[in-house]
Amino acid sequence: MNEGAFRARDIGLRAQKKILSRMAGKNVARAFIDDNTASLLDNLYRLAKQYTDNKKEAEKLVKNIIKVVIKLGVLYRNNQFSPDELKQADRFKNKFHKAGMAVISFYEVDYSYDKNYLLSALSESQKSLRYIVERHLTEKSLARIDSIFTFFGNEHFLDAVFKTDSEYKETLGRLVADLNRALDNGDL
């Protein structure tokens, strides 16, 4: 009987991840994501769209972020992470927090942009996140994680966004304001 219950729970968890993944459009995201995070995602979308000049690619990028975040939430709420994965999650959170702080600093302090630091922080964050979820998510979901970090960890993108006279300065400013609010709220 225990085996059947375990399978049912497993199936229920997979169904929950699948349903939420398919529903990860903008309106559904707002039901799962607070206003500041929604604003941050909207500004990430604007930045990606402005950089790529491709609405579809920018939408896909943000949808991938939403799907990954929702799946992480489902896994966490269902106590699916091992103690080692939870330790790695703390490392991920710390490294990602430092990357967010660096973005803020690079925006607010002229000539402080350190591409190598940011690339390293993003790469370490990606590795930590993959470690946390690799036994829980499909290859397709892992590819989503990789595509997110590949986009934001692209040195040409980072150079364009953080150069002193960047055409992305206004959008980056709105994003930084969202990051500051997320830090103040303890969300980053």
Rank of each mutant, 00 (worst) to 15 (best):
G4I: 15
R7H: 01
R9M: 14
D10V: 05
L13F: 00
R14N: 12
K18A: 13
F32T: 10
L41K: 02
L41V: 06
Y45Q: 14
Y45H: 13
A48L: 06
K49R: 12
T52Q: 11
K56V: 07
K56T: 12
K56I: 09
A58E: 09
E59S: 13
L61M: 10
V62G: 06
I66G: 03
Y76R: 08
R77A: 06
R77T: 14
N78F: 08
P83L: 15
K87P: 07
A89T: 07
K93N: 02
K93I: 04
K95N: 02
G100Y: 02
A102F: 01
I104F: 00
S105G: 11
F106P: 03
F106L: 09
Y107P: 03
E108L: 15
V109M: 11
S112D: 11
N116S: 15
E124Q: 10
S125D: 05
Q126C: 08
K127S: 11
R130E: 15
Y131M: 01
I132L: 05
E134I: 08
R135H: 10
L137K: 07
T138L: 10
S141T: 15
L142G: 09
A143G: 07
D146N: 15
S147V: 06
S147E: 13
F149E: 01
F151V: 06
F151D: 02
G153T: 07
H156L: 15
F157K: 07
F162R: 10
K163Q: 15
D165E: 15
S166Y: 12
E167Y: 13
E167P: 11
Y168L: 11
K169T: 08
R174L: 13
A177I: 09
D178E: 05
N180K: 14
N180P: 01
R181P: 04
R181G: 07
A182I: 03
D184Y: 06
N185V: 10
D187F: 00
L188T: 01
L188N: 03
